[in-house]
Amino acid sequence: MKTYKDLPADGGSNIVGQVTQQVNRLQQRLASVRHTVAIMSGKGGVGKSSVTANLASVLGLRGHNVGVIDADINGPSIAKMMGVRGQRIDYGDDGVKPAISPLGVKVMSMDLFLKDDETPVLWESQTQKDAFTWRGTMEMSALREFLSDTEWGSLDYLLIDLPPGTDRLPNLVDLLPNLGGTVVVTIPSGVSQLVVKKSLTMAKKLLNAPVIGIVENMAAYVCADCGKTEELFPSGNTEEMASQFEVSLLGKIPFDPRISIAADEGSVFVDQYRDTPAGQTFFSITDEIRMFFESQI
């Protein structure tokens, strides 16, 4: 009896061929992207999307062509933070035209596809029972389409805002074998860093790409009246974590309520408040990332 390997094909469906075609399409699209950077954190609520939006905007202000993908399929927030929510997107000649932020950053997010504010991401299915068996695959297929079907054009940087947790990282490796590097966001709390360490371990073990560095968000609070700096989360030690994992600490962003206000308004904090301590830190972190890639040339 012939075995699986003896049979030349799958009878006409060519499922492997169809998947290969998806991979080829992705590679062709990303061929015009110079640097792909994943922004990640094991922990939710550390301000990862806010950091992504501001880093992308600084890169735009520095004159780079930049794109951002909101890989948080179920909790998309990048579109709002970058002021593109409600923008109409449509087909172009070679895919779907992305939304464009006021600073010219190209954005693709599930938020642009959802009907309204209250609508969650639900996939059509005969039953939602036992949806755990296929929902993850749906989400990765959506991310693959965001990457490969968006008309990115030539980009200097494509930032990927990953959802919290470490589970998406292995899938990202399959989608992006040429990932340029990762930036890990944490806050200086012991609980956050406990989780973030797992992400760092996962990133170092699984990814061929280097960890560019750690960003400490909400590092301290600067009093708007007297300018005095107070710690918000005194229990963590980001320097120690960076040292333990032998990665750079790219910068410490002080807490500034205007970052949150800007995100809610869809305006760009780093453009409005570039001379504040937080604004300056976003610029210096971005320059560290640029130098990281320039040093590789």
């Binding site: 642009l112 959802l114 059509e124």
Partner: peptide, 22 residues
Amino acid sequence: PMEMVQSFLSQKNPNNLTSEAP
């Protein structure tokens, strides 16, 4: 482009992707 998202997302923004797909 975006075939899977467009086909299977339950409630979509009706204003988007309204032209003929390439």
